[in-house]
Every structure is written in structure tokens, then in C-alpha cells.
């Protein structure tokens, strides 16, 4: 049985004992099915082109083929301001006029 407390902490959660028991059960059920991936060897699955493994993108792209792909999506370096500070702080749970506010951070 995996100890999910480590992941609970990483994810900034504080589960009740009941919740933790329940979620641990579900966590184990699901993650145990992942072990089947160990049967697959991916050491040849990578770097299709330009030294890049296009692993993060659902769009398939190959430089050599004619298949449509996009890359180099870049923005010109211009400043544009669409929102006032007031508008963006509207939803703040705690703030003074100019700053967002949280309990004191101890360094």
C-alpha cells in the first residue's frame, strides 16, 4: 500500500483520516494499473527531428513531412495594458489597496 501522505503534502492538501483512507484506496487501485507500462520499452521512441522529442504536444509534427505543424509562436515585444489594478484585485480574499495579502511568511 502506497503512502499518499508524501503526495498530499506536495499538493498542499491536508486530508482528514477518513478522506485519506478513502483516497488511498482509490489511489492504489488506479496507480496499480500503471505498472503494465513497465512492459513497454521506449528507449527508441524519441528525437524524431532537430534533437527534439515532441512529447508535450497532441499535434504531431515532423519537419520532413508535409504535415502541418506549428512552432516558433512568438509575440512582438510591445506593452499593452487592458486591466486596471482595481479590476484584477476585485476577487482578492485579502488585500489593502495596493497589495495582495497573506499570513506572514517566515524565511
Amino acid at each position: 500500500m502506497k503512502n499518499i501522505e508524501k503526495y498530499e503534502k506536495t499538493a498542499m492538501l491536508a486530508l482528514s483520516d477518513k478522506e485519506r483512507a478513502e483516497l488511498t484506496k482509490r489511489f492504489d487501485e488506479i496507480t496499480s494499473t500503471f505498472e503494465v507500462l513497465d512492459e513497454y520499452d521506449v528507449k527508441d521512441y524519441f528525437t524524431r527531428h532537430c534533437g527534439l522529442d515532441p512529447q508535450s504536444h497532441a499535434q504531431k509534427y515532423k519537419v520532413k513531412s508535409q504535415e502541418s505543424k506549428i512552432f516558433n509562436v512568438l509575440r512582438q515585444d510591445v506593452v499593452e495594458k487592458f486591466f486596471t489594478r482595481e479590476k484584477l484585485m476585485e476577487n482578492a480574499p485579502a488585500s489593502d489597496d495596493e497589495y495582495f495579502s497573506v499570513p506572514r511568511v517566515i524565511d
Binding site: Y99, F100, S101, V102, R104
Partner: peptide, 14 residues
Amino acid sequence: LVHDARAETTLIDY
């Protein structure tokens, strides 16, 4: 982060 000693809060400027 700006530490506001009086109010025991930390203020944030993004």
C-alpha cells in the same frame, strides 16, 4: 514580498 510587521501579514506585489 513585503513584510508588514505591524499586521503580521506579508504583502505581495506581482
